[in-house]
Write a protein that binds this DNA or RNA. Structure first.
Length: 811
RNA sequence: GCCCGGGUGGCGAAAUCGGCAGACGCAACGGACUUAAAAUCCGUUUUUCCGCAAGGAGAGUGCGGGUUCAAUUCCCGCCCCGGGCACCA
């Protein structure tokens, strides 16, 4: 077989077709004795077109999956579609195509592209979240949560995007704007909606972050910690002067309460509705309206004095009660005590309105602090508490409130319950029925799934599209059989992605979401891979869902994924790829030009995986050239495999480099995940092959050719499968054992020791490993290059690190 | 403002435990092969200075300091870039 030139267009379709024809090829073994490994990439939204940004995520996961197979694991590597969502609905309105039809077409396109890329998915486990077989279980889970009080309905101020014509979860609001429409400010609307009580798990979600440390990026854990926002403090009742009503405030700094010079209510506070009237009521209304459209944090602080006073239970002082726009209604009790001397916001507000400022905390060092002084210190001017340290005072003063019945220690979380109602069509119908007599009644399990009706007009405006379908809405009450109405909102699509990875373990199950035994085998996910943009949305919902499923007795694991990896973005010309900028490169055109293997290899090589990666055509050409170099070497070596010969220096050098490369790539996979350095090491190895090629014996050529193919198999599977077959070996390559590192073969002949004088490199020598320190010192001092720098100077000391260096310190 | 990342040649980057800074690749340049080009193969490429040359000397990892025989790596203080959070009481 003479040298052949590499042509991806003939190789890749051939193997792609073979792989597609064998549905068991990438399936894990049943009842396997091998250790299991579950590798998962976040499932995509089926937009219809894979681009080179998507394939980075999958290339990393696929390299890992193939490596783990070669390392003898039973690998689960599934893929599916996050198939509900607004784009399908918008496309339906625009193109007059059914959302289902549009979505199915896109899934087909994207699946074809995935197959063309050669990713090793077990397609028998494919999950599409828009199928009734899947969303039935969303409904089933919802009812379970309803039964446990974890799903409930309430009227609340909600984030509303007029462009999406639906409400958004708090997690979907970015910089005060919609996550899908970065220039549309989110408005506040009061609506009655379904909520999932994620706050019931706030403490555990926070606590278990500890279990994820080491396995999840610190950045993601920090973001989740902030998002959950646990804060320890005290709730204290101030008594309204005159009426005797209580106003409860939340503070983390009860030690400063003697410095409270007013109480401030959020504009939506109950007492404001009750007691503020006339001009003031209009001003409060204006405040609420302004807040509905204004990005938070940018508004100037404004307030109105209510005319009321409240009594501080600690010192009996009567302070004015204000309403102000900077007090949040949804956090704590919706009311605060203002301590302007020790809080920047209170300081700003009270200064503006001439409210007194009284210092009650002194710095630890006894100095006089400039106000506002917001650190901990020593309590002053505070009656019996004077002289205590802040931390101590917080505890004692909290206990005092509890003992006297006007308050208690309290823990407040920033995270709020997850509002999941969406006034849109293309999502999971919420399986609830509204009956005039019985109230809200869940759809009986036997009637699930509640199917999305087909006879719905989509306008993209106004209220829930499902409300327009009479056949959908009108239903007898499951309890009393009287006419009743179905809930017409659908679920947030983040419900779909909160548990899809469990369904992969048992995707065809029609009796249950999954068989718990299968979950017990596969979970937790050993490696989850996806974009950091999901750090608080998907990843916090998924953690919650896992805990919820555990508590209804379905599973036993506390967390979904043991390890998480967040890869960097692929950018083009310094900018994120986007349709607007017109710099999107489709996976198809990339594969036409370079092939799937080249695309993978370049993306894994050009930067470490967690960092952003700049796609360049020149760089991709380099990867293509390299693949050609490997291809030519192996194909022209095959004829020489049986040529006899006595191994010499060249053979030894090449085998040494081979084993050094095996070690580096194996280590990179097992610990660092820096595939860029794996591939660089591999390139060095190939350069050595080229340098020594003509001297090599047939046996060595065979050995290095085979090992080359095995080592490269996780990165360029098409190339390797082809070469493996050309060498006459039985495939598939990714089920062959990974090459074993032999430290003896990898060992260098001797240690290269460098000679320094005053830390500067002056000479070097190769010595036997383990050469004694004083021998090394003598060698250095007698080195011709070292001598001139030492002569005539006093040697202060000599540092010798065996096998590494000698540093002569002179004066 | 707070919390994470990051800053190294013309470019992407490497240096895994404090021990030769710039591996590997791109681009550029030179050579071989070729009638020619492409492809391929080989080589040069941080920078300044001295030298006709072989070669030699110095500087250099955002800036300033420190620890050390030795710092891209550890410590302190700053600057810049990217991301997250941001009236959360």
């Amino acid at each position: 077989m003479p040298e052949q030139s590499y042509d991806h267009k003939s190789i890749e379709p051939k193997w792609s077709a073979r792989w597609a024809a064998d549905p068991t090829l990438f399936a894990p073994e049943e009842n396997s004795s091998k250790p299991k490994f579950y590798v998962l990439e976040m499932l995509p939204y089926p937009s219809g077109a894979l681009h080179i940004g998507h394939i980075r995520n999958y290339s990393i996961g696929d390299a890992l999956a193939r490596f783990k197979w070669m390392r003898g694991f039973n690998v689960l590597h599934p893929m599916g579609w996050d198939a509900f969502g607004l784009p399908a609905e918008n496309a339906a309105i625009k193109n007059k195509r059914e959302p289902a039809e549009w979505t199915h077409y896109n899934i087909e396109q994207m699946k074809r592209q995935h197959r063309r890329m050669g990713f090793s998915y077990d397609w028998a486990r494919e999950v599409s979240t828009c199928e009734p077989e899947y969303y039935k279980w969303n409904q089933w889970f919802f009812i379970r949560m309803f039964e446990k009080g974890l799903a409930y309905r309430k009227a609340a101020l909600l984030n509303w995007c007029r462009e999406c014509a639906t409400v958004l979860a708090n997690e979907q609001v970015v910089d005060g704007c919609c996550w899908r429409h970065e220039d549309i400010p989110v408005e506040q609307k009061e609506l009655t909606q379904w909520f999932i009580k994620i706050t019931a798990y706030a403490d555990e979600l926070l606590r278990d972050i500890e279990k994820l440390q080491g396995g999840w990026p610190d950045r993601v854990l920090a973001m989740q910690t902030n998002w959950i926002g646990r804060s320890e403090g005290t709730e204290v009742d101030f008594t309204m002067d005159g009426t005797g009503e209580k106003v409860r405030v939340f503070t983390t700094r009860v030690d400063t309460i003697y410095g409270a010079t007013c109480v401030i209510l959020a504009p939506e506070h109950e007492l404001v509705k009750k007691y503020v009237s006339g001009d003031n009521a209009a001003a409060v209304k204006a405040m609420i309206d302004a807040r509905a459209t204004q990005a938070p944090g940018e508004a100037e602080k404004v307030g109105i004095f209510t005319g009321l006073h409240a009594i501080n239970p600690y010192n009996g002082e009567k302070v004015p009660v204000w309403v102000a726009n900077f007090v949040l209604t949804g956090y704590g009790t919706g009311a605060i005590m203002a301590v302007p001397a020790h809080d920047e916001r209170d300081f700003e507000f009270c200064t503006k309105y001439g409210i007194p400022i009284r210092a009650v905390i002194r710095p630890d060092d006894g100095s006089t602090a400039e106000l506002p002084f917001c650190d901990y210190g020593v309590v002053a001017n505070s009656g019996e508490w004077t002289g205590l340290a802040s931390a101590d005072a917080r505890k004692k003063m909290s206990a005092h409130a509890a003992a006297n019945g006007f308050g208690e220690a309290s823990i407040t979380f920033r995270i709020k319950d997850w509002g999941i109602s969406r006034q849109r069509y293309w999502g999971t119908p919420i399986p609830m029925i509204h009956c005039n007599a019985c109230g809200v009644v869940p759809v009986p399990d036997s009637q699930l799934p509640v199917l999305l009706p087909a006879d719905v007009e989509l306008s993209g405006k106004g209220q829930s599209p499902l409300a327009g379908s009479a056949s959908f809405v009108n239903v007898p009450c499951p309890k009393c059989a009287e006419p009743a109405r179905r809930e017409t909102d659908t679920m947030d699509t983040f419900v779909d992605s909160s548990w899809y990875f469990y369904r992969y373990c048992d995707a065809q199950n029609s009796d249950a979401p999954f068989d718990p035994k299968k979950i017990a085998y596969w979970f937790p996910i050993d490696q989850y891979i996806g974009g950091v943009e999901h750090a608080i949305l998907h990843l916090i919902y998924s953690r919650f869902w896992t805990k919820m499923m555990r508590d209804i007795g379905l599973i036993t694991n506390d967390e979904p994924a043991a390890r998480l990896f967040t890869q960097g973005m692929v950018i083009k010309g310094g900018a994120k790829m986007s349709k607007n900028k017109g710099n999107v490169i489709s996976a198809d055109s990339m594969m036409d030009d370079f092939g799937a293997d080249t695309g993978r290899l370049f993306e894994l090589f050009a930067a470490p995986p967690e960092r952003d990666l700049d796609w360049t055509t020149d760089g991709a050409m380099g990867a293509y050239r390299f693949i050609g170099r490997v291809f030519r070497f192996v194909t022209r070596s095959i004829d020489r495999f049986d040529t006899p010969g006595i191994p010499g220096d060249a053979d030894r050098k090449v085998l040494r480099k081979l084993h050094q490369t095996i070690q580096r790539i194996t280590d990179d996979f097992e610990s660092r995940w820096h595939f860029n350095t794996s591939i660089a090491a591999f390139m060095e190895f190939v350069n050595e092959l080229y340098a020594q090629e003509s001297e090599l014996t047939g046996a060595t050529l065979r050995e290095v050719s085979e090992k080359t193919v095995l080592l490269l198999a996780p990165f360029t599977p098409y190339l390797c499968e082809e070469l493996w077959e050309m060498m006459g070996l039985a495939g598939p390559v990714f089920k062959q054992p990974w090459p074993v590192f032999d430290p003896e073969l990898a060992k260098e002949d001797g240690a290269e020791v460098i000679f320094q004088v005053n830390g500067k490199l002056r000479g070097k020598a190769t010595v036997a490993f383990g050469t004694a320190k004083d021998a090394l010192e003598q060698l250095a001092l007698s080195d011709e290059k070292v001598k001139p720098f030492v002569e005539g100077k006093a040697i202060v000391k000599v540092i010798v690190v065996p096998d590494k260096l000698v540093n002569v310190v002179v004066k």
